[in-house]
Amino acid sequence: MTVATDLSAKMGLEAVSVRDIAATAQISLSAINYHFGSKTGLLEHLVREHLEAIDALREPLLVALEQSGRPDLRATLKVIFVPTLTWMFGSEEDQIRSQFFSRALVTPIPEIQRLIDENIRHLDRIVYLIEACDLGHDRAEIYWRLHFTMGIEHLSFFDLGRHRHLARGLLQPFGKEDLLERMVDYAEAGWRRT
């Protein structure tokens, strides 16, 4: 599983082959096929595990905010960003998981996209929290702005290194909390705009 995650993160879910995984893990090709049926079955298993892990990071944040009585926008935005940043700034294994998951989010493999689409329960809860912030947006506008907010998360998740390169040395090193505050500041400005 570790090898499959690592190779998929480096090569892309479409490009990695079961042969690559089996050779690197030093196991037989038939063992992978026996347990997962196919490369897609293996990738689906990995994506499910990653979705569950992200949900486990997000759930206590959602529950705390839901129980707070009246959520504020910044806290709600942090619920969106914190799980991603936890992996990005975590252990080497977490960073590989981050790369794998970012690739899974954009893969054209239909079975993987279906899994990701099915795992959006938290988004409805976030929409209700944003509605409770009373920003004056109708539900359709909330979904649009949530889409763009998730774009901030996904691009940071997928390719933060390119951002550093494009800035040509202007950016000072930053940590998880610094990046979180910048992401929230930017997203909050978009949410508050009428």
Rank of each mutant, 00 (worst) to 15 (best):
F100E: 05
I130R: 01
H50W: 01
L65M: 10
F157I: 06
W144P: 13
T107E: 03
I96V: 12
D185Q: 15
E141C: 06
L160A: 11
E188H: 04
L65K: 08
A75H: 08
E177K: 00
Q172M: 06
L42H: 02
A23R: 06
E141D: 15
E93N: 14
R70Q: 12
L166V: 14
D94Y: 04
R145P: 09
P108V: 10
I32T: 02
L13N: 02
Y143T: 15
H147M: 11
T5Q: 07
W87I: 10
S28N: 14
A104G: 12
Y186E: 10
Y128T: 15
L146V: 11
V16C: 03
M150A: 08
Y143P: 04
P83M: 05
S98Y: 01
S68W: 15
Y34I: 02
T194Q: 02
G151R: 04
T76S: 12
T40H: 11
R192V: 13
R145G: 04
V18Y: 00
E93Y: 03
F89H: 02
M1R: 14
E44Q: 13
H45E: 08
S68C: 15
T5M: 06
F148I: 09
V127I: 12
D117F: 13
V82T: 02
V16R: 00
Y143N: 12
H147N: 12
L123Q: 05
L170E: 11
S156R: 00
R182C: 14
I54M: 10
L166H: 01
H165R: 05
P110T: 09
F81A: 04
A56M: 09
P173N: 01
R182Y: 14
L57N: 07
C133W: 01
H163D: 11
Q67C: 12
Q113Y: 10
T40V: 14
I109G: 02
H45V: 01
P71M: 11
E188P: 15
P60W: 11
I126S: 09
W144H: 12
E111V: 06
G41F: 04
Q26M: 05
K39C: 15
L171C: 03
P108Y: 07
A31L: 13
K78I: 09
A64I: 06
K176M: 13
F174T: 10
Y143D: 12
T107Q: 06
I142C: 08
D178S: 04
G37K: 09
N33Q: 03
R114Y: 11
G175K: 00
H122D: 05
D94N: 11
N119Y: 08
